[in-house]
């Protein structure tokens, strides 16, 4: 197995762990953590393809990862603010009970 394939297997497994965690847990902070893991797995792919790609001299993979990290930081801030807002409304952060918008 070439190093590129090892990197891709690594990121696939990390993505699957994040997906399983986000689906299995009912605590909204843990769901957010699972999403973070999946985003990290995507960033791993960027770096892996940049490292073993045809032209690693152009720094485009690193640029992509920097922008992705910035967007992830914004997403986490908004997500945590939503969690705190939900907690203020219903005194817990279980996702099953956040059903005010249900028709």
């Amino acid at each position: 197995m070439s190093p590129l394939q090892l990197c891709l297997v690594f990121s696939s497994v990390l993505f699957a762990v994040g997906l399983a965690g986000a689906l299995a847990r009912s605590n909204s902070i843990l769901v957010l953590l699972g999403i973070e893991l999946m985003l990290n797995a995507a960033n791993l792919n960027f770096i892996a393809f940049w490292r073993y790609g045809p032209s690693p001299s152009s720094a485009i993979g690193v640029i992509f990862v920097i922008f992705a990290i910035a967007v992830t930081a914004a997403e986490t801030a908004v997500g945590l603010a939503l969690v705190i807002s939900i907690y203020r409304h219903q005194q817990n952060i279980r996702l099953q009970e956040a059903s005010h918008l249900k028709g």
């Binding site: 197995m1 070439s2 190093p3 590129l4 394939q5 891709l8 297997v9 696939s12 497994v13 993505f15 699957a16 762990v17 997906l19 399983a20 965690g21 689906l23 299995a24 940049w50 490292r51 073993y52 790609g53 045809p54 690693p56 001299s57």
Partner: peptide
């Protein structure tokens, strides 16, 4: 949830392992 994660991991890993992704032999950029 674990089944879904395992299925995704299986599909991705088998696709990666079967594909012909030869790494370009380049020095560390």
């Amino acid at each position: 949830a674990i089944l879904a994660g395992g299925a995704v991991a299986g599909v991705l890993v088998s696709a990666v392992a079967r594909g012909s992704l030869a790494a370009a032999r380049s020095p560390t950029p």
